[in-house]
């Protein structure tokens, strides 16, 4: 757990020390197997997420299902993004700025449960993933920091 943090008074009247945005953003990139939905990703993935959001409407789902490539061509998406969407390559979509709450519109359109879709981003099959969850989920041990893992493995060598 954290220590008690900066010792400043209540917000009223007090000035909060401004966080260093560069350090803040760098830390967000230091988590193994995780793509934090930062402003940079939100910007890059804007049209991926807005496309996914359009699937909230039944008529759009029907048009998308009828001709996926044609529907995607209506959106200002890169070929890479279109390819990843057609392949349902969700890790790739996260890298391109997709966010899971938006991508989940595509899960539902495909008739996939949230957990099943999520399992495709791991190295497990859905039954394996489900068993892991029933057994208490994935432990954070060794999953907290890329830098810490690197330092530990260098020490080990």
């Amino acid at each position: 757990m954290t220590d008690s943090g900066p010792t400043i008074g209540p917000m009223t009247g007090a000035t909060k020390p401004s966080a260093n945005i560069h350090e803040y953003l760098a830390e967000l990139e230091d988590i193994p197997g995780t793509r934090v939905y930062t402003a940079a990703r939100a910007r890059r993935g804007y049209h991926i997420n807005q496309f996914a959001m359009s699937l909230m409407k039944a008529e759009n789902r029907d048009r998308f299902r009828a001709d996926q490539a044609a529907y995607l061509n209506e959106w200002p998406l890169s070929d890479e993004a279109k390819g990843a969407l057609l392949a349902r390559d969700y890790n790739h979509l996260l890298d391109l700025g997709g966010n899971v709450y938006f991508l989940s519109k595509l899960f539902s359109c495909d008739g996939l449960s949230f957990a099943e879709a999520v399992s495709t981003m791991t190295d497990m099959t859905f039954p394996e993933y489900r068993d892991m969850m029933l057994n208490g989920g994935r432990s954070p041990e060794g999953q907290r920091s890329i830098r810490a893992n690197l330092a530990a493995s260098e020490k080990g060598n």
Binding site: I31, G33, L94, V118, Y129, M133, G136, G137
Partner: peptide, 14 residues
């Protein structure tokens, strides 16, 4: 955690 290879993380102690 609903995304990425680390999906499924739980931490009862925390």
């Amino acid at each position: 955690q609903l995304q990425g290879p680390r999906a499924g993380l739980l931490n009862a102690e925390w």
